[in-house]
Design a protein around this nucleic acid. Structure first.
Lengths: 216, 216
DNA sequence: GTCTATACGTAGATAGAC
DNA sequence: GTCTATCTACGTATAGAC
């Protein structure tokens, strides 16, 4: 009665692949038609399936949005950490924070659909589940810890680790990304008129929280 | 054959009122169901009409979105100018710019639906017509002229009137508004954790473009 | 696991009577 | 100017055969 483990693995893997493909195609559809215009029928069509078949993998349309939210939250957090680690392992906290933030912004620009789902909340009835939301909270905590590290290193004033400073930091990033999407949605991260301001807003942040000079 | 002018006026006025009511109810529906979920049938229902009747006033759903875009663009520009004029007539350019900007932000927070339509572009197929877009362009020009005035008065460095500075200014505002909507959509302008940062980001802007000190 | 068939609901838009 | 009636289209979701 029990099947070979290998076969079960194959089936499980195939199922996972199908789930991944559904999410990928869903992003394609949203890219073309708008985040709020996701249609399961269209996803099925592009996969060569009938709409009912999708319900073997997701119980509802909302579940697909939710899975995409969770996936996006994990990916954007990972992108920031990877950017930071890539070229600056061992660098000072402020330089690390800068690349962390740059990685975050770059991911957002390169993933407009997921960014909109994550940070704009424009889909009529959709609310992410607490589990899907968790990675987003974790990312914010990573940002906080990096601000604290810069303070501890004497590169920023103590207030830079306050909740107000965290909020301000997110506003600066959010603003650049929002303006880039609204005004030049197709520009690359490097060429965007607004994304080019990422280093600028970072400089403004560190200028505001410059540590007091001790002319010892 | 010709009717009394008074009667024609009455009809014309009534028609205008109906058009206004359609737009008002549309905003109500979008507030409750999401900007992208506007339904003409729902609007008609709330007005005590049948859906086909709306087509006497607007030729399509897109036309309603377009009218709302134009209305929003006019109103937000007016809100900024009125805020500026209200308490600071005759004040220095930088103080005027600050209240101008504050009026803009306040209007955005108090009109989330129109703000989303104007600045986020999240409605699947919708593009505003050039005529609807014109007031938005005009507002940006008003911002530019105020930056130039502050430069001319020696309150900001010349670069504060550059296109980069204008872009930066819009990013700062956009970021605060975006974060407020995403995280505390129901907070008032005064109480919002993010809108409270409007003066802060303004200060950061003027700090960046502080004129060179001449110790004459 | 995928299908056919279908229930069920909604939408935008038009034709033509009143 | 508003209505009834209708067209056309699309969507989500479920039941049950294969």
């Amino acid at each position: 009665m029990t099947r070979p483990a290998q076969l079960l693995d194959r089936r499980a893997r195939r199922r996972r692949e199908t789930i991944e493909e559904i999410l990928e195609v869903a992003v394609e559809v949203m890219t073309e038609d708008g985040v709020a215009a996701l249609s399961l029928a269209e996803v099925a069509r592009r996969m060569g399936l009938r709409p009912p078949s999708l319900y073997q993998y997701f119980p509802s349309k909302a579940a697909i949005y939710n899975a995409l939210f969770a996936q996006g939250a994990r990916r954007v957090a990972a992108a920031a950490v990877e950017a930071e680690a890539a070229e600056l392992d061992g660098a000072d906290p402020l330089a690390r924070l800068r690349t962390f933030q740059d990685g975050f912004c770059r991911w957002c620009i390169e993933n407009p659909v997921l960014t909109q789902l994550l940070f704009w909340r424009t889909v009529p009835g959709f609310e992410p589940s607490p589990e899907s939301f968790a990675p987003a909270v974790a990312h914010l905590e990573e940002l906080r810890s990096r601000l604290r590290a810069a303070v501890a290193a004497g590169q920023l004033a103590p207030q830079a680790a306050s909740e107000e400073a965290v909020a301000l930091f997110t506003c600066l990033v959010s603003g650049v990304v929002a303006q880039q999407f609204a005004n030049e949605p197709d520009a690359s991260y490097e060429q965007g008129r607004f994304t080019r301001l990422v280093p600028t807003v970072f400089d403004m942040f560190i200028a505001r929280y410059a540590p007091k000079e001790h002319t010892s």
